[in-house]
Amino acid sequence: MRQLDPDELLERVEREFRVWLDETGADSAHIEVNGIGRVQDNVAWLMRDGVKEWSRIPWELGSPQGDLRTAQALPDRGAWTWCRLWMAAADGVLRQECDWMREPVFTQASGDIRPGPGDCWNELKRYPRDDEFIPDWLRTGYEAELKRQERNARRCENYRRKREQEHGD
């Protein structure tokens, strides 16, 4: 059974952050995550003498870190859509900052990717939220997808009825 206990995951993430810092000799390591539905986009960097260096997340860290969003989902506010994880080599303590309301944006040169209606639908299906915790961007996307599904259901029903009539059932 896949281990999704948030405390154990965090311990594992913390251990792997320490390994990452040991292996690179950096002063601090940072990961910034944007997530929606089933996907998360991560950017990572190290700081060395005040200089920022883009970095790859080591595989052993990426695996538990990738499960954090699901493991840390709460019954009333769902899963965070943005999070920053960081650790300073000086104290070896993992720190985390999360935002449940921020619209997750995957920034890239070819054009930022924003959540589509299907993503918003998936997000609320997988990680339901109480009404007060649904920001406008999420509500709008969800309602657009709901309308689309209702339209499709009506279309299917009309088609089915028409076929019945044609076949004289």
């Binding site: 896949r2 089933r38 996907v39 998360q40 986009d41 991560n42 950017v43 990572a44 883009w54 970095s55 790859r56 997340i57 595989w59 990426g62 695996s63 990738g66 499960d67 699901t70 995957f106 890239q108 040169a109 299906k125 997988r126």
Partner: peptide, 23 residues
Amino acid sequence: QLEAKWVDENGVGRSRNFNNINP
């Protein structure tokens, strides 16, 4: 889970995780 890593046009390392667990 599927985890993809790449380097973008600015030389920045990026990664993306895809959760494949049902539901």
